[in-house]
Amino acid sequence: MASSSDEIEPVLGGSIGVDRIDEDAERRLFDRWAVELRPDLFRYAFWLARDRALAEDIVQEALLRAWRAFGGLRDKQSVKQWLMTITRREYARTYQRKRLETTDLDALSAREEGLIAAHDDLDVREMRSAIFDLEAEYREPLVLQVLMGYKTEEIAGIMGISAGAVLTRLFRARRKLKSQLGWGVEE
């Protein structure tokens, strides 16, 4: 997986055991991961919620929760996936609290029109709009695969579904986008 968390070096250098570093160092380590991974977390939250303000809140809450639980974390290689899972759970909590108006797509689109249109390339804008309209079950694995670089088994782990179901959704997601954008579905 081409994960940015794989590229993060420990603050104390070398192959430290995370359980041996002191609290300040642990805080700096968490800070650094939070800064480096925030763009990924925000984009993941945004494409889950399709709401920029809500995505910011979700990421902030997720990082708060992550910091509280950080002392128990021992596997730094899985930090990114751990944070993604916390972000996803935070989105679920927000969803169950607020009963997000996921069916009111027009209102969501109108609210985020500026963000969707914030690109010079018309093809990208049209693609962004098409992804925005995609059902959540197709949108999420696509984000995890294309943007986050996760493998099928990792996506299955994050979403709690089988690898086969992930592949089916990814296939259908691309088919739907192609159909919507008039790329044609080659057979």
Binding site: F42, E56, Q60, M127, L142
Partner: peptide
């Protein structure tokens, strides 16, 4: 096609909010 998807997913990331509660301190 996937390159286009990736470009589309790369929405601008806002600057961090002034934290209502600091996550690290």
């Amino acid at each position: 096609f996937d390159g286009l998807i990736r470009e589309a997913l790369l929405v601008d990331v806002p600057a961090p909010q002034a934290p209502r509660r600091s996550p690290v301190a």
